[in-house]
Amino acid sequence: MQLSMTATAGPGVPVAPVREPIVEVRNVSKLYGNTVVALQDIDLSFEKGHLTSLLGPSGCGKTTLLKIVAGLLQPSSGEIRVKGKPVNGPGAERAFVFQDFALMPWASVLENAAYGLKVQGIAKSEREDRARHYIGEVGLHGFEKKYPHELSGGMRQRVGLARALAVDADILLMDEPFSAVDEQTRRKFQEDLMRLREVENKTFLFVTHSIEEAVYVSDRIVLLSPRPGRVSEIIDPQISREISPDDLRRDENYLDTVERIWTGIKKYVE
């Protein structure tokens, strides 16, 4: 029970306070049944325009927390505020990217990417124009007429990303988006995500179980510990964006941060 401290930096590394919170998680707990505590007293703020990773071993409730922020799950207690207003359901200012892509197998790439706009009642020609734009943006130009089963795993997730971008939400919630694609595609994807962050003025909440991935892409890492899920540590990797992706993986600061997180998590891994 010594891990109940929140928003505390590890030894020696100060964590910057959140200046402009866009998503606030207030005292959120989630129970399954009456006995299984998935999340306990989570108190977090997410900086506007930043990419924050939720990192932790399996069973720490990181996906649960993300789905609560998305409004797909209801917290057992506590509340979620988005742009200062409490929310208790999905909303147009948030878009979700799914681990298993959640593409409709009966619909083409274009129809899939335009789906969010369709639900929001945008006229066909306009939604298809916007979907086409983002399909190009994620590098799938020319694949509009294809069906999901004709694409590789990485390409399918690009469709999922285009769909989330097309609705022009301020906040992108990504649930282990790269875990179902192979390692090479994953690296390329991470680099694309970094580039996307520069272009689009959006806030990212990113769930992952990969320490390297979190350190590589995040402005801030929220470390969760399992059973019950709590915030155990908050880390700002502070890795210079000047370093090229290829050099980064040999950067001392990068390697140290990875090592430090692994040391913290190790005891929860069976």
Binding site: G71, L72, A92, R94, F98, A102, V119, Q120
Partner: peptide, 8 residues
């Protein structure tokens, strides 16, 4: 969930 997240 995807459909719900867009408010279907």
């Amino acid at each position: 969930e995807m459909s719900r997240s867009f408010g279907a």
